[in-house]
């Protein structure tokens, strides 16, 4: 994971999932958990979710909106969108290289 994900330790991967989840609109905690589970097939624990949300908010990659009842939605900031795009481009290159090498090795 590249900066700023590299400094997030065990929260790097959940943070990426959360940014992707928020990329199509604001969501509250439960909606993020459900969305991430649908995307990845793995549930995101509540402690991990809020640990990652706190880190992303602290870094200005997401922002909390006004609470709706007890639910507080989060949305991607401009910096968050830029960071996510850079991270996905990096991963795309990584995946492409891996698939090319794998294809070359099996010939």
């Amino acid at each position: 994971m590249t900066q700023p994900f590299g400094e997030l330790g065990r929260f790097a991967e959940p943070s990426l999932y959360i940014l992707v989840s928020l990329s199509n609109g604001a969501k509250h905690g439960y909606a993020i958990m459900t969305d991430v589970e649908q995307m990845t097939g793995s549930p995101l624990g509540p402690g991990t979710l809020y640990g990652a949300l706190a880190r992303l908010e602290r870094r200005g990659l997401i922002e909390a909106l006004e609470p709706e009842d007890r639910r507080r939605p989060y949305r991607l900031t401009g910096a968050g969108a830029t960071t996510l795009a850079a991270q996905l481009a990096h991963l795309e290159g990584f995946v492409r290289t891996g698939l090319e090498r794998l294809g070359g090795g099996t010939r």
Binding site: P43, D69, R70, R72
Partner: peptide, 18 residues
């Protein structure tokens, strides 16, 4: 975060893993 977390846990009762 408590209000949000309690609301989330009300929607999704925690497993042992949670």
């Amino acid at each position: 975060y408590l209000a949000e977390l309690e609301d989330l846990l009300a929607d999704r009762p925690p497993t042992i893993r949670d």
